[in-house]
Design a binder for these strands. Structure first.
Lengths: 215, 215
DNA sequence: ATAATAATAAACTATAAGATGTAATTAAAT
DNA sequence: ATTTAATTACATCTTATAGTTTATTATTAT
């Protein structure tokens, strides 16, 4: 199964280097070249392309927008960012846009070929210069902790409902109107919530609710 | 610069296969072997190890805990998870624990060698079977929006400081004590904060501060 | 110098919040 | 069928907590 590659890179020299590198690789089929994002989209729409190697610093439409556009057309296409930019924002925005790998231009060519091949198979790869950004971002991702860590404070349905509204910043009056009950009732519920959550006031209740993903 | 590798794997067969694979690789120095997490930690503490290849399904202490323990001892050590588990929780918890790469045991040996080498250089690599988990997690990561999207409400340093304390659920009295100023002063600052954030009360202020990552 | 901004504070007000007790309604248990 | 417990609901009360306003001093910029 040969893979067709689209190289998006405005500098002819680099483009030529890339093309030459991949020409001799056995898993590579047709190699397309684009010097701008616009050209890349045109080529992408009219050909069957498996892998895109994308520079970020392009004239007019930038590489991140191009990545997003391509990703929206075909989510199966693997997009490899190849750039010298390496700040956190660029990296994460690329990934948000749909990139599967992020390479520095300093990369060794043989390694680049390996990366392209494994990314074509579905892997994700991140350059040493930015790997920490990705690792930190995933480490921060909130899986496993939603609620499970702490007790769920057996609130009644109504209490949970009111707590939810509290986390949205509503006053007792507003909550009462929302639920079409008296303010007094709302207050009673709130009092009960405060007790159950073992906090002093509604602010702390709301914060705790958000922190532990109650509601 | 040769790299020393520690293989942590309870099945002798797999361990032997790994060892044999890496024995002939030129960037590899000494290869250590452990059949359990406990043994691995023992070896790790007493030797200079650059790369750990870690199985997740170990007896007693599991691979994730072992990863965490090793990472805490030396954050420079690169840890490659090699496993057949591939559910989201395992993957993300591994990365939280400090892993740098995640491989399936179905991986082609030559590719594994490439992965180990590039991870040794600082790269991050994720197997096709779980790459989407990592990519989604990073895509969700909230970078780019912290503050930048919205105005930063030019709070003064003091105001920001007080807002921070508000987001931790402190009352005006408590804030005053913390900062060793009068409650009245605190109130004045709070009033100013409410105005600048265009909200009605401290609850809303705290919520907004958290949402937009002010403070 | 002068103006503007920030930090501090006191006095004032009020209302919104929270505490407490109780009644009506529903569900579970015997 | 009857009791018990739990949930929802409401009113009254009190106060202290929050927020407003105005003012003084200190710092910084023009």
């Amino acid at each position: 199964m040969k893979k067709n590659i689209l190289i998006v890179e405005d500098h002819e020299l680099t483009r030529f280097g890339l093309k030459t590198t991949f020409e001799d690789v056995d898993f590579v089929g047709v190699i397309y070249e684009a010097a701008s994002a616009e050209e890349a989209l045109e080529i992408f729409k009219n050909n069957s392309i498996d892998i895109v190697i994308m520079d970020l610093g392009l004239p007019n439409m930038n590489g991140i927008d191009a990545t997003q556009a391509i990703h929206e057309i075909n989510k199966e296409t693997k997009i490899i960012i190849l750039t010298s930019h390496n700040d956190e924002k660029e990296v994460l925005n690329s990934l948000k846009a749909g990139a599967n790998a992020y390479c520095s231009k300093e990369i060794n060519l043989q390694r680049l070929v390996n990366v392209v091949q494994s990314v074509a198979d579905g892997a994700a790869w991140f350059d040493p210069s930015i790997a920490h950004i990705v690792l930190q971002a995933t480490a921060k991702s909130d899986v496993g902790e939603p609620n499970t860590n702490y007790k769920d404070y057996d609130l009644t349905a109504r209490e949970a409902q009111i707590l939810k509204l509290m986390t949205e910043g509503y006053s007792n009056m507003e909550i009462a109107q929302h639920l079409v009950i008296s303010v007094n009732t709302t207050k009673a519920h709130v009092a009960s919530i405060l007790q159950k959550l073992e906090v002093d006031d509604r602010l702390q209740a709301a914060l705790k609710a958000l922190k532990y993903k109650i509601v």
